[in-house]
Simulated scan of single mutants.
Amino acid sequence: MSRWDFGEQTLTTLARSTSGSSDELADLITQLIQAAEPLSGKFNGAGKAAFDSFKARSDEITADLKAGLGSINEGQYGMQSAFSTGNQTMADDANRNMSTANFDAAKFKTV
């Protein structure tokens, strides 16, 4: 059985990184379209249709990718919240149980 061991801020850091990657990906798509613009007049037939379709749908594609990464990001923050809450609950339960435990009964007495 594997065990997950990570710091308190691991998921928060991951979520920030995912958010930054989403913006970076959108910028890269824009750069790709701009870089390919000089080629737009060079295509014919199916290649031209595919290129024109990609170019026309670039905003939609970018929005879909950002929405998908946004959902992943939301899940990461949700996981962070769940782990933090679970960690605090476990600590509270342990402290509550220790306060009611009779540690003196567990001591070995020599006769």
Rank of each mutant, 00 (worst) to 15 (best):
M1W: 07
M1R: 03
R3T: 13
R3Q: 13
W4T: 13
W4I: 10
W4F: 10
D5S: 09
F6S: 06
G7A: 11
T10H: 13
T10N: 12
T12Y: 05
A15Q: 03
A15I: 03
S19R: 13
S19M: 10
S19F: 13
G20C: 05
D23H: 08
L25W: 07
A26D: 09
L28D: 08
I29Y: 10
I29T: 05
T30N: 11
L32Y: 10
L32F: 11
A35V: 04
A35I: 03
A36Q: 03
E37V: 03
P38I: 04
P38R: 01
P38H: 08
G41R: 04
K42E: 10
K42H: 09
K42W: 02
F43M: 13
N44L: 09
N44R: 12
N44P: 00
N44C: 06
A46K: 07
A49P: 00
A49R: 07
A50I: 14
A50W: 03
F51Y: 15
F51V: 04
F51E: 05
D52H: 01
D52P: 00
D52T: 09
S53I: 00
S53M: 06
F54V: 10
R57Q: 14
R57V: 00
D59T: 09
D59Y: 01
I61N: 03
A63E: 15
D64N: 13
D64H: 09
D64V: 06
D64T: 09
L65H: 02
K66R: 15
A67E: 03
I72Y: 09
E74A: 14
G75C: 08
Q76M: 15
Q76G: 06
G78D: 15
M79I: 08
M79P: 00
Q80G: 09
S81Q: 14
S81P: 00
A82C: 01
F83E: 13
S84V: 06
S84P: 00
T85S: 12
T85R: 08
T89I: 08
M90P: 00
D92T: 08
D93N: 15
A94T: 13
N95C: 00
N95H: 01
R96N: 10
R96V: 06
T100M: 10
F103P: 02
F103Y: 12
F103L: 13
A105I: 02
A106V: 08
A106R: 12
K107G: 02
K107I: 05
K107R: 12
F108W: 14
K109M: 12
K109N: 15
